[in-house]
């Protein structure tokens, strides 16, 4: 009886890990697409409205997909807290927090980090260029992510359960 429960437990745990990894692969292209459109909104705010950055980021946070809104809301909170921090610092803190809860990987985070170092510190044309560059890079990452998703989602879905099964077979 106990063995039976053990087996079920191992199978469930391993399947869960597999599903979680697969879910990350499945969600990454989507998050990257959301990020691209959020950066597009930010570009519009800066290019046409010359909206001050805290307001512009707040607007984007309200209008973008809620999965990625945290990146912008946390940055805004830091900026308006009045602790004298720069955009780069606020953005990096927000990004660290965001990386944990979203599906983006370190390459995507590097693109965003580079963008954060340039936000708000130059004239409009320059800002637009930096935002376009970041969008371009995210697009490339997104197409890679699509390919990886096709390859890996099914793989990890099965791999979790099967590795559980392997463990069970070896130990019984």
């Amino acid at each position: 009886m106990l063995t039976f429960f053990g087996v079920i437990l191992i199978l469930l745990a391993c399947s869960y890990v597999g599903f979680a990894v697969a879910e990350k692969y499945r969600r990454r292209p989507q998050d990257l697409r959301y990020l691209q459109s959020a950066l597009q909104m930010l570009e519009t705010e800066i290019a046409y409205g010359a909206t001050p950055l805290p307001d512009a980021l707040g607007q984007v946070a309200q209008r973008c997909e809620k999965d990625i809104a945290a990146l912008f809301t946390v940055t805004v909170d830091q900026l308006i807290s009045g602790d004298g921090g720069t955009v780069r610092e606020a953005w990096e803190r927000a990004l660290k927090h965001f990386c944990r809860q979203s599906a983006i990987n370190s390459a995507d985070a590097a693109v965003l980090t580079a963008l954060g170092g340039n936000l708000g510190i130059s004239d409009q044309q320059d800002q637009i260029k930096h935002l376009q560059l970041a969008r371009e890079q995210l697009k490339i990452e997104a197409s890679k992510a699509e390919v990886e998703a096709v390859k890996n989602v099914k793989l990890y879905n099965y791999l979790g359960f099967l590795s559980g099964l392997t463990i069970v077979i070896i130990f019984i």
Binding site: I46, A50, T51, P52, L53, P54, A56, L79, G84, T86, V87, L119, G120, I121, S122, D123, Q124, D126, Q127
Partner: peptide, 17 residues
Amino acid sequence: ISRVIQLVSNSSIYALE
């Protein structure tokens, strides 16, 4: 200097042309 620029401009130099 770079911090003062950011704080003075409310992190938005592009809005201060």
